[in-house]
Design a protein around this nucleic acid. Structure first.
Length: 626
RNA sequence: GGGGCUGUAGCUCAAUUGGUUAGAGCGCCGGCCUGUCACGCCGGAGGUUGCGGGUUCGAGUCCCGUCAGCCUCGCCA
């Protein structure tokens, strides 16, 4: 029902109620619903919005009116404004209305729970702009509803303040980032969405070509090569808020399309990129969460991060770091430790402060879960002080009770009475994986992670290559354009066709850097290879033949011939930054229209089938369908 | 591809070992109510227990299959 004042045609009887309403110029609203205060008393205002709730007292009616800015209480008095009151009685949740009235003090009836609680609007005129069906869930912050249902009705979900604020936070952060780079000489340049597939990394999303049957574009996994071409093209400093696409399985912090803050600079060393990025992040943190991030951010080497935190994205909000006890435990005969040590592995542990109080149920639960990620079990022991001497209790205590072994362990790890020591023994990579997981899990379960703490850091000195135990071969830790450190180039035998020893290759460190917040990687970057000979050597080491490299990256190799400057950059996960700053549990919470875990859009139901004629035009035929 | 959890009214949940007509709160609809803001009071409607099959005198409950959602491992250079 859309009521206007100037309807010249006679209204049907059913609309008689509304006949007397006056059309309000809703485009001339004076305020948003969150801004009126006691000081505005006496003002005549025009508000528009949605009906949050209605409280009909038979006589007077209260309506909470909501828009993007907040909520204001409307007051309808049957004695002074009978027409408006009549309409107010018919309003329901989510009806869209415009009202004109006077701001007045609520006197003694102030509601301290709402920002606008000092005032209400005595409504004189109202226009019903649109009705609404009953929403499937209440438009409130504290709702306990399936995310699935919320996403199907995302329109209503977005009306909830929490979702609205997430999108506004995202805007603030994005704007702050754009401002920073714009003010520092970076040029915002768009790169292509329709690209050539380069099947090295993640799976590509493919787009069939109509003009070239059998050929496909790929959506970008990142603008990586194009930003390098921009540097070689002399643009010097570039940034882009770029959408990227990866056709891999999803997680709480992974979507098939996500947004990356993409940055590249020419004539720089790692420090130059890192300084700009940390200043940018600090500015965004100030705007988004009001926190002053001390700069420069701490730097930690990849090797130290793996040794102390078991992962390349350390969470430094709590201690409980990993300690190596291989040498001490080499002295005892305990098969669980001895076998891995004999094979060149390590034994490491974490000390859980006060962990002796953990119940059998708790530790059994951890044991089951750590088995789930591949560990054989979870050897543990409690520390008890007996006559001034640390004594092992329960668990693997009987294997540690000879001589001074346990005292040595406690001295080396700082374990004391009432603590619990948890061990892992395996090859180094697995021990890192198990204890890295365990450290985080125990900290979470025991409430050891302080809230309101923001621990940023840079992880640097990544190795160029990792060692794949199963394949017994090296694999690249980063994309193949990452530059090795100048002093490590010697190990690569650039300019010769010889393949260096794997042991040598594993020594090579990259000019790469990741920025981490509270144990989550916000982004990573590197100085790129600007020498054609080095780039070709890397392709060779990764097992790409000259022909393959030429086929896939010819345009990059070609560009490297024409005076490529030293250059490097970074890519930051914008969704993750907003998720962390806003304390959300999933990046779906900070994306307006996210996909679900099966990469479908619950709202539009994408992906969907297409007409046979469309397939024919593209030269495609569907062979199987599920 | 593997593992785990979940699916009952519009929403959130309950329903003894398999046993009468599947209940509650919120929401919704109708009535009453002039200072509420979780308004209150009275009354009412609302169900293919995700779907299909099986066992049984009898299935929301047990079995098999299937679909959907979430988490996770693999994967994500």
């Amino acid at each position: 029902m859309f009521v206007t004042a100037d309807s010249s045609a006679p209204l049907p009887a059913s609309k008689k109620k509304a006949e007397n309403t006056v059309a309000l110029p809703y485009n001339e609203r004076t305020h948003h619903c969150g801004e009126l205060r006691g000081a505005d008393e006496g003002k005549s205002v025009l508000l528009v919005g949605w009906v949050q709730t209605y409280r009909d007292h038979g006589g007077m009616v209260f309506i909470d009116l909501r828009d993007r800015g907040g909520i204001t209480q409307l007051f309808f008095n049957p004695d002074t404004d009978p027409q408006a009151h009549t309409i107010a009685r018919s309003l329901r949740s989510e009806y869209v209305i415009a009202v004109r009235g006077d701001v007045r003090s609520r006197g003694a009836m102030v509601n301290p729970k709402m920002p606008t609680g000092e005032v209400e609007i005595a409504v004189h005129e109202i226009e019903l702009l649109n009705k609404s069906e009953t929403p499937p869930f209440p438009i409130e912050n504290e709702i306990d509803t399936n995310e699935d249902l919320r996403l199907k009705h995302r329109v209503l979900d977005i009306r909830r303040p929490a979702v609205r604020e997430a999108l506004m936070l995202r805007h603030k952060i994005t704007k702050s980032i754009r401002d920073y780079f714009s003010e520092n000489g970076f040029v915002d340049i768009e790169t292509p969405i329709l690209n050539k597939s380069t099947p090295e990394g993640a799976r590509d999303y493919l787009v069939p070509s109509r003009l070239h049957h059998g050929s496909f574009y790929a959506l970008p996994q990142s603008p990586q090569i194009f930003k390098q071409l921009l540097m070689i093209g002399g643009m010097d400093r570039y940034f882009q808020i770029a959408r990227c696409f990866r056709d891999e399985d999803l997680r709480a912090d992974r979507q098939p399309e996500f947004t990356q803050v993409d940055v590249e600079m020419a004539f720089v060393q790692p420090e130059d990129v890192m300084q700009h990025v940390e200043r940018c992040i600090a500015a965004a943190a100030k705007v988004a969460i009001g926190v002053d991030v001390p700069l420069p951010l701490p730097r930690i080497s990849y090797a130290e991060s793996m040794a102390k935190y078991g992962k390349d994205a350390p969470d430094m909000r709590y201690d409980m770091t990993i300690k190596d006890v291989s040498e001490i435990l080499r002295k005892i005969e305990f098969r669980v430790f001895a076998e891995p040590l004999a094979k060149g592995g390590v034994v490491r542990c974490i000390v859980v402060p006060g962990g002796a109080e953990m119940t059998r149920k708790e530790t059994d639960g951890l044991t089951e879960e750590i088995k789930g990620i591949g560990a054989g079990g979870l050897p543990l022991v409690k520390v008890e002080d007996k006559d001034g001497k640390p004594t092992p209790q329960t668990g693997i205590a009987k294997f540690l009770s000879d001589g001074d072994v346990f005292a040595e362990i406690c001295a080396a790890t700082g374990a004391k009475h009432g603590d619990l020591i948890m061990f892992a023994a395996d090859n180094e990579a697995n021990v890192c994986k198990y204890l890295g997981w365990l450290r985080q899990e125990v900290a979470q379960r025991r409430g050891m992670i302080p809230e309101n703490d923001w621990k940023f850091c840079w992880v640097v000195d990544f190795p160029c290559f990792g060692w794949d135990e199963e394949a017994q071969a090296i694999y690249p830790m980063h994309h193949p354009f990452t530059s090795p450190k100048d002093e490590d180039l010697q190990y690569m035998k650039v300019g010769s066709d010889d393949v260096p020893e794997a042991a040598d290759l594993l020594k090579i460190r990259a000019k790469a850097y990741d920025v981490v917040l509270n144990g989550i990687e916000l982004g990573g970057g590197s100085i790129r290879i600007h020498r054609g000979d080095v780039q070709r050597k890397i392709f060779q080491l990764l097992g790409l033949s000259v022909e393959e490299a030429k086929e896939k990256f010819d345009f990059l190799l070609d560009a490297l011939k024409y005076g490529a400057p030293p250059h490097g950059g970074i890519a930051l996960g914008l969704d993750r930054i907003v998720m962390l700053f806003g304390r959300f549990g999933s990046i779906r919470d900070v994306i307006a229209f996210p996909k679900n875990a099966k990469a479908s859009c619950p709202l539009s139901l994408a992906p969907g089938r297409v007409a046979e004629s469309q397939l024919k035009e593209l030269g495609l035929r569907v062979v199987t369908s599920k």
